[in-house]
């Protein structure tokens, strides 16, 4: 029971977030008319939402890859044989 409940919860959360996400984009299309867009991306409705979605996924994947292939070391990397850091 509890495991089914805990599995259900993330799906519910995800659906709520998707609903809010769509609402926020719709809200912008319907109600916001930018009066002074000075950059191309300010004319695209829902640009901020897509930026968050795409840039978020790319940046965390890129950061993890950077760590995994280049920068991650064992936690004892700087330790001297005597245990001093």
């Amino acid at each position: 029971m509890s495991s089914a409940h805990s599995k259900k919860q993330p799906v519910k959360l995800r659906n709520t977030v998707i609903a809010l996400f769509v609402l926020a984009i719709l809200g912008e299309i319907l109600f916001i008319h930018p009066h002074d867009p000075h950059e191309w991306w300010q004319r695209v409705p829902g640009f901020h939402a897509l930026l968050g979605l795409i840039a978020g996924v790319i940046s965390i994947t890129a950061a993890k890859a950077l760590g995994k292939y280049i920068l991650y070391r064992k936690v004892t990397y700087y330790e001297k044989p005597g245990g001093k850091v």
Partner: peptide
């Protein structure tokens, strides 16, 4: 602002299962 936060959070929900924390040191 709300769009930016919601979009980011949604992206995180999609890739959350692939993320693991590792006990490492970053150079």
């Amino acid at each position: 602002n709300l769009q930016l936060l919601l979009g980011t959070y949604l992206g995180f929900l999609f890739i959350r299962q692939y993320l693991h924390t590792e006990d490492t040191l970053t150079l």
